[in-house]
Simulated scan of single mutants.
Amino acid sequence: MIAPTLYSRAFRPLYFTASRTDTLGNVIFNQFKQEVPRQYIQTLIATGAVYHRSPLHTFKSLHNVPLPRRLFSPDDMVQQDAMLKIFFFPRQYPTDHVDIDRCVLFENDQFLVIDKPHGISIGPVIDNYHNNINALLQQHRSSITSIFNPHRLDFQTRGLCVLIKDSSYINQFNSMLRKRSITKRYRAFYQGPNMITPGLYTHYMKPSKSTIKEMSDTKVEGWHECILRVLESSQCTVSMPISDVEQDFLSIDMLNGNWKQQEMLVGKGINRTRHAMVQLNYVDVELITGRTHQIRAQMRALGRSLVGDRMYGGMAIQQLSNAQFNPNDQPYPHRSLHTSFIGLVSYQLSFECPLTGHQHHFSLLDSKQ
């Protein structure tokens, strides 16, 4: 395996221009003085971690230069002076915890509704075209030829999400999003001595391309208004594995499956693991506005960071069941703030189909809840 420090910091792309016209594989191989194995180069290309843009002199105007696009074959021809963008160390996300058939809750000719697990993206990410819900669906269902994603959830979040199959339905679905005629409810889990009082909460988000969103309690000129409604505040007990491995937490059902579990040993045979009972607070919230990371950022602004959400000041999920766990002692990238699990679940989704007028209602809560 190539050491990440040789060429580029992980998650950061490397740019260069082709020194001669040749195949994509040869251009990359020669750019790095034949030190990068061809097999690794082919893996990067197949992963979707290599982008290409034609030389600038081939465009009539510099005002209409397109963004680089992915290439998937090492045999694709690349012109001299073409720009290449490479993610040398694309993120590889496990999908072993994803049963794609069980994820699909509803399907018709226009759309699907899925229960997206923690730790997987809806669609491709910038450095990996695969390892996502779209790709798994198309691998398992030959009838699905294309999927569109106007409705998204964060990689770390579990819950209900609508995937569009029919391109002519996208505009109608986007119209419902703009008119806020889709009701989405989330359950947010946190630790702390004090409960959050039900009601409306308003904060203001600084316009920024930064991953971590900054909030203000008071109105700031030019900042985006963020409003959420806390519907209910309560407590629960969740059975969690005692493990240093974040992947072991990805299949936890925070909503239903662990509420009355009392066993300290769970599973059979080699899969038998020690569990601990963890007391958590939670709030059921409804978004009035819909901003990137809104719930995560507003929960931090309220002093109640989500469990597992280290990006916004939350405790590492492993620490909930093992107080001795220290994320700073973990090797990179496990000490990164980019975790795979946060205590946030989109548990309820309701909307009226603009084509049929049918009122759809989906919920992940057991009837006893």
Rank of each mutant, 00 (worst) to 15 (best):
A3W: 09
L6G: 00
S8E: 01
A10Q: 13
F11Q: 15
R12T: 14
R12Q: 15
F16W: 03
T23Q: 06
T23M: 09
G25D: 01
N26D: 14
Q31H: 11
F32D: 01
E35M: 12
V36P: 00
P37R: 01
R38A: 01
I41D: 00
I41H: 00
I45C: 03
V50D: 02
R53C: 12
S61T: 15
V65R: 10
L67T: 13
L71S: 06
F72M: 09
D75N: 15
Q79W: 05
Q79V: 08
Q80S: 11
Q80E: 15
L84F: 05
L84I: 05
I86M: 00
P90Y: 01
R91N: 10
Q92K: 14
D96G: 10
V98F: 12
C103P: 04
F106I: 04
N108S: 05
D109R: 03
V113H: 02
V113C: 03
I114S: 09
I114H: 11
D115N: 15
G119F: 11
I122W: 05
I122F: 04
N131K: 12
I133L: 08
L136N: 13
H140I: 08
T145R: 15
S146T: 14
F148H: 15
N149P: 03
D154E: 11
G159K: 09
L160A: 07
L163T: 06
I164V: 14
D166M: 03
N171P: 01
R178A: 12
R180A: 11
K184T: 04
R185I: 12
Y186W: 06
I196G: 00
I196K: 07
I196W: 06
T197Q: 14
Y201F: 04
Y204V: 08
Y204E: 00
I212C: 06
T218F: 07
K219G: 03
V220T: 11
W223S: 09
L228D: 07
R229H: 14
V230M: 03
E232D: 10
Q235S: 14
Q235M: 13
C236S: 14
T237R: 02
S239H: 08
M240I: 11
D244C: 11
D244T: 15
D244I: 09
Q247W: 07
D248S: 11
S251V: 01
I252R: 02
G257D: 04
N258T: 15
E263T: 10
M264V: 12
M264W: 14
K268M: 09
R272M: 13
R272F: 12
M277D: 11
V278T: 14
Y282K: 05
V285T: 12
L287T: 01
I295W: 02
A297V: 04
L302H: 04
G303T: 04
V307D: 02
M311P: 02
G314R: 02
Q324V: 11
N326K: 13
N328M: 12
D329R: 12
Q330N: 09
R335Y: 09
S336G: 07
S336E: 10
S336C: 05
F341S: 00
Q348K: 10
Q348L: 10
L355G: 08
H358L: 06
